[in-house]
């Protein structure tokens, strides 16, 4: 097990290095630069380049970047002078996570519940009802759903503020907006797997042995229907935790997602690279964790490991 973890960590480190290198050079290959403006004077631009070391050869900049990165220093933002990328991530990630984590939990809960119920009543009206909701959830884009929720619950009913949260409950609308799509995906994944699992011989024999429906479904069928959804949850967790640009924009949440997208337009090389590295890190960790989870749920793996 330890060997596996170490191998995996080494591989992930390699992935990180590739991501860092690609981001570093691709950003610099984009036309336009961080200090491009309609009215800048060449001398002033030279000063700005010198200030941020962009006048150095690319190889030197890359080496400097990696050296700093080894100390977990992601550099200074080029758009927000005086603020480091580490600070920006430290300030905005908790905001994104505060929306992303409940959204992930909600999506998992709704998805698994609806998926199981749908499979149990396969082709009956509850199944169709759930499928209709799931299709709706998949087809409504984030921005439309968010705008719709704002219109109904903030403007018309006045239950929530339009934007700018002050207390945890204010996050209900962004969490819902963020959770619906993945909930629908998980519903469909679980439903498909579950329908298949419920037809297996061992389920039938379990029922014949007189086990109650709850025990059959929860103890015997569900663990075998979960892996696909669990594998999907890995990358999903990274995406939700690091924030969605659209949801953060419409609900005016000071999260990481907004910085990520605007930093590309601003050609804020350090911020783009920093957030990309951070995102990759979260992605690799959550994928690793979900792999471990799937591993521990799989009886075959468990037995092999135990023997």
């Amino acid at each position: 097990m330890l060997g596996y973890v170490l191998r995996r960590a080494g591989f992930n480190l390699g992935v990180m290095l590739v991501v860092v290198t690609l981001t570093f050079f691709l950003m610099r290959l984009l036309p336009g630069d961080p200090f491009m403006s309609q009215r800048i004077n060449p001398d002033i631009k030279e000063n700005l380049y010198a200030k941020y070391g962009l006048d150095q050869p690319a190889a030197r900049q890359y080496a400097d970047y990696l050296t700093a990165l080894a100390r977990f220093d992601l550099g200074e933002s080029l758009k927000y002078p005086g603020r480091t990328v580490n600070q920006i991530i430290a300030e905005s990630f908790p905001v994104s996570a505060a929306v992303g984590f409940p959204a992930l939990a909600l999506a998992a809960f709704l998805g698994v519940t609806a998926g199981v119920l749908s499979a149990i009543w396969h082709n009956r009206w509850p199944d169709r009802f759930i499928l209709a909701w799931a299709t709706l959830g998949l087809s409504i884009p984030n921005f439309a759903l968010g705008a719709g929720l704002i219109y109904i619950f903030a403007l018309k009913l006045g239950i929530f503020p339009v934007a700018m949260y002050e207390k945890p409950l204010d996050l209900v609308l962004p969490v819902l907006t963020l959770a619906i799509w993945p909930a629908a995906v998980i519903t469909r994944l679980i439903r498909t797997e579950m329908i298949e699992v419920l037809q297996r011989d061992y389920i039938i024999s379990a029922r014949v042995r007189g086990l109650g429906p709850a025990a059959v479904v929860l103890r015997h069928a569900l663990p075998n229907a979960l892996p696909a959804a669990i594998h999907y949850t890995g990358p999903l967790a990274a995406t939700l935790l690091t924030g969605s640009f659209i949801v953060e924009k419409i609900f005016a949440l000071p999260g990481l997602g907004q910085y990520y997208i605007t930093s590309i337009g601003n050609r804020d090389y350090n911020l783009v690279a920093g957030i990309t590295i951070f995102y990759t890190f979260i992605l690799l960790v959550s994928t690793f964790l979900t792999d471990l989870l799937a591993f521990s749920l799989n009886p075959r793996c468990r037995y092999r490991n135990g023997s």
Partner: peptide, 18 residues
């Protein structure tokens, strides 16, 4: 000074009195 970037959200906040 609020820093809401989205103009539709800004309008909704204005109409709501935020």
């Amino acid at each position: 000074i609020t820093l809401v970037d989205d103009s539709n959200t800004e309008l909704a906040m204005f109409e709501k009195g935020q």
